[in-house]
Design a protein around this nucleic acid. Structure first.
Lengths: 120, 120
DNA sequence: GCTTGACCTGGAGCGCGCTCCAGGTTGAAA
DNA sequence: TTTCAACCTGGAGCGCGCTCCAGGTCAAGC
């Protein structure tokens, strides 16, 4: 079990130190270890949670929903079905989001082409 | 020149009444006409601006940048090059955004498949 | 032992993009 | 003529997701 200092965890996860502390404060990330002096020590497992949070945030999941997911995971294996369903619903929203983004990107490209057809 | 009531403009653009007023207040949408009684009348041109704003918002452009674009447009034809460049830079950011979204969507799908492989 | 920089906590503050409210006006339909 | 929903203005408030700050502690290197 290596154990990472806060700055290292921040670097690896892409979250700021403040955000890591914030995630712990709101109970999204829980059970982060401490040194005898009270400093955080992040494990590989913490890091893999952070990787997941990064994925979910980048795809637009609200923090409240990530909290719900984390809470379910803490409750144990019997919540696996509910967790899967939560991710599945989110994935569908992401698909919709990707379609919208593509559609609006196409409009944007067309608008740019309009400028390209302009004289001078 | 048809001319649309606020509620009709809201319906057609997908923005709320408050948002339409807000966009006018901050100078994003300018020169919106009024009836003698002071009520807004949106033209087809206003509507096509709103369609553009919808496209830019949906693709994540900050409002300040849309203001900049609108301001350039008001300055006249000689700013066409700058406007094109602004949209082009935005389009590149959108491409990056789409790549990230796709990547994280793939991770999400993989995570869901992990649940699918679970017993019961 | 001293310095220094990384870290701690609790809590306030912020930037964005709206959204809501109070209190008043308008205008089309009945 | 009356009604009443839609609209007006100015300004306050909000939800989100951090971000910053003060005031202090810890620990590695000199």
């Amino acid at each position: 079990m290596p154990g990472y200092a806060p700055s290292e965890a921040a670097r690896r996860s892409g979250f700021s130190l403040d955000t890591l502390r914030y995630y712990e404060k709101i109970g999204l990330l829980s059970g982060v270890g401490r040194t005898s002096g009270g400093r955080r020590v992040f494990t590989d497992e913490d890091l893999s949670w952070l990787v997941l949070f990064r994925c979910l945030r980048d795809t637009g999941m609200p923090i409240a929903e990530m909290c719900r997911y984390a809470e379910l995971a803490r409750e144990g294996d019997h919540t696996a079905g509910e967790r899967r369903a939560l991710l599945q619903r989110h994935a569908e929203r992401v698909e919709e989001q990707m379609r919208l983004l593509q559609r609006q990107y196409d409009h944007l490209r067309e608008k740019i082409r309009f400028y390209d057809r302009l004289p001078d």
